[in-house]
Computed example of a mutant assay.
Amino acid sequence: MTDIRRVDLSIPSAARMYDWLLDGHHNYEADQRACELLLESAPSTKALARNNRWFLERVVRVMAEEHGIRHFIDFGSGLPTQNNVHQIAQAVAPASRVVYIDNDPVVLAHGRSILDENDRTAIISADMGNTPYIFGHPDFTSLIDLRQPVGVLFNSVLHCIADEDRPKDIVGRVVERLEPGSLIVICQLVSDDPQLRHDVTELMRVQTHGTWGRVRERWEVDDFFDGLVIQRPGLVDVTDWRPNSELQQRQRSIEWTEYGGLAEVPPRRQHRSATARNA
């Protein structure tokens, strides 16, 4: 197990900042200070984090209940909190299997301490761009059957990938390994305000010592879905993605949003361009 004492806890991480925004307990003083600076630029960021977590719960349930997905891969999974992917999926179908991918040592330590009790889950220490290592890892191959449709989540994580690391290519390499009928969740932070995009991007790069990417525009996230069949209700602020209640819709972030949705891997013979399924 990772020794947290050897981790430089003076450097904030996006995963632990997200945990703090969700009122979690697996974060440290540096993460809290970084969040306070972030809230100065984007005061509604706590609402954004809550909305994203609610979206995760809804979309995993839809994949399990409506599409029969039983194998899930969660890239950049973050710290365990309530209603994790395996808990949501296994509440629908107890045989569901989940592999979490993350490179934050604190995430790995806490995750393994929780997941050790569940033999249908695993957490792998890896950069999400290291596709061959992840898909060849014994914990992955023992749990995930790629001959079946799989649910893949890039939930609130691609903004952590710098442009030079080509986040679209990371998604593409994963999609190439999946059977038709597999489902992909992609959402990331976007803003229409160029100044906010610049300011928050620079703040996060400085605070995390460069382990961050960029706040993007909606059209850039649209491009991540190239070749996939977008499911209803399309690509939206995730607050509006099949909400359970008006209460969830009312608790909006203002300065920026999590934008994205759910898409299906089409048959290989199908023309590979993004198309929207009619609602």
Results as ranks from 00 to 15, higher is better:
residue 85 V to I: 14
residue 239 T to K: 00
residue 77 S to K: 09
residue 19 D to G: 10
residue 115 L to G: 08
residue 143 L to V: 03
residue 214 R to Q: 06
residue 55 F to L: 04
residue 190 V to Q: 04
residue 82 Q to A: 14
residue 53 R to M: 03
residue 52 N to A: 05
residue 4 I to Q: 08
residue 225 F to S: 04
residue 164 E to H: 13
residue 261 G to S: 04
residue 25 H to M: 04
residue 222 D to E: 14
residue 265 V to H: 10
residue 27 N to L: 06
residue 121 T to P: 03
residue 183 L to T: 03
residue 133 Y to F: 07
residue 96 S to Q: 05
residue 85 V to A: 07
residue 127 D to G: 13
residue 12 P to R: 00
residue 154 F to R: 11
residue 188 Q to E: 09
residue 131 T to S: 00
residue 50 R to F: 12
residue 236 V to K: 02
residue 278 N to I: 15
residue 236 V to C: 04
residue 237 D to K: 06
residue 83 N to D: 05
residue 180 P to T: 01
residue 2 T to D: 03
residue 198 H to I: 07
residue 26 H to A: 14
residue 50 R to Q: 14
residue 277 R to W: 00
residue 10 S to C: 10
residue 113 S to F: 01
residue 160 C to A: 06
residue 17 M to F: 05
residue 1 M to H: 11
residue 71 H to F: 12
residue 258 E to L: 14
residue 90 Q to Y: 07
residue 242 R to E: 01
residue 253 S to L: 04
residue 157 V to F: 06
residue 29 E to L: 14
residue 259 Y to S: 01
residue 109 A to C: 03
residue 39 L to R: 11
residue 96 S to V: 02
residue 130 N to R: 15
residue 84 N to M: 08
residue 147 R to P: 02
residue 97 R to I: 06
residue 224 F to L: 13
residue 229 V to D: 15
residue 147 R to L: 10
residue 203 L to A: 12
residue 162 A to V: 02
residue 209 H to G: 08
residue 210 G to N: 11
residue 61 R to S: 13
residue 175 V to D: 02
residue 32 Q to H: 08
residue 83 N to F: 10
residue 229 V to T: 13
residue 79 L to V: 15
residue 227 G to E: 02
residue 145 D to C: 06
residue 137 H to C: 05
residue 217 E to D: 06
residue 20 W to M: 09
residue 151 G to C: 10
residue 71 H to E: 06
residue 128 M to K: 05
residue 177 R to C: 07
